[in-house]
Amino acid sequence: MADKPKLAMYWAASCGGCEIAVVNLHEKILDLDAAFDFFFCPCLLDTKISTIEALPDQEIAVTFFNGAIRTAENEEMARLLRRKSRLLIAFGTCATEGSIPGLANLSTREELLRTVYLDNPTIDNPEGILPLPSSEVAGGTLQLPVFYDRVLPLKQVVTVDYFIPGCPPEAHQIWNVVAAVAAGQPLPPPGSTLGAGQLSVCHECSRRKGEKKIARFYRTSEITPEPDICLLEQGLLCMGIATRDGCGAPCPQANMPCSGCYGPPAGVADQGAAMIAALGSILDPGDCRGKSEAEIAGQLAALLDTIPDYAGTFYKYSLAGSILGGRVKS
């Protein structure tokens, strides 16, 4: 046991889907277990944090860190695991870009706490009690991790060696990385993305692509798309054009538009901006001949009104890692 390299997996602000994705390796998980001493994973194993703290620095060969940084505890664990690991890998889009927890960056900390603890219709909190980092109770002082102002991707807190995107990462891609590390294969330069492509989901999508002109957007419940034609051309807001490939495009192949879970493609700093650039070029506000500038603007506005939530759609998985990182103070 002791001579096998150690593998750890930790969750910060995440949903547990990344752990499910690892379990989705199916029988390959036995190969993973044969190659590594998979000794720390709070979702699956009962190793204590004190065990990690007692390890010499750099003792863990690989740590898969999933989840974003939301609280002081998340950051503390990120720092601890960074110190103890030779390779720290941001695993899943929460860790690489903030993902769904990162959408909280559209609201302030105060707004979030107010909604969750005071304003929600199902809340019964007549004294208006809010969680505090430290509170005095009859039995002594209770401590809670500090809730940060913003959700941060892992790389904004510690140095990250590699990034594996996906919400969650596809099992075959996880296996590619595990197998490469286990075999001691040379890895790309630090800071690279592993287990994904460089291009966009369209590259892997088998739907027929023609000239794109969108005259109307539809929600997925409103139409049954043609099986072979690009969904975006049919008015479904497919994020495939602004999303990194590597997943194998399972969603568009199942008639569901890509929602962008692999984050921005290589070389793109801001997924939402890339989507705005792409969409802006293919909007078709209708016949504009002989119309005034105001009339044309009205037609364009009517077309855009059919998109329900711009930031929530274009930045669904990458708001925290985007250029502005969320809503800014004006």
Partner: peptide, 17 residues
């Protein structure tokens, strides 16, 4: 194209404060 992008960008910028 720039005009259309700008219209869309404004809507996102509003959400971003």
């Amino acid at each position: 194209r720039a005009a259309q992008r700008h219209t869309l960008l404004l809507r996102v910028l509003e959400q971003l404060g």
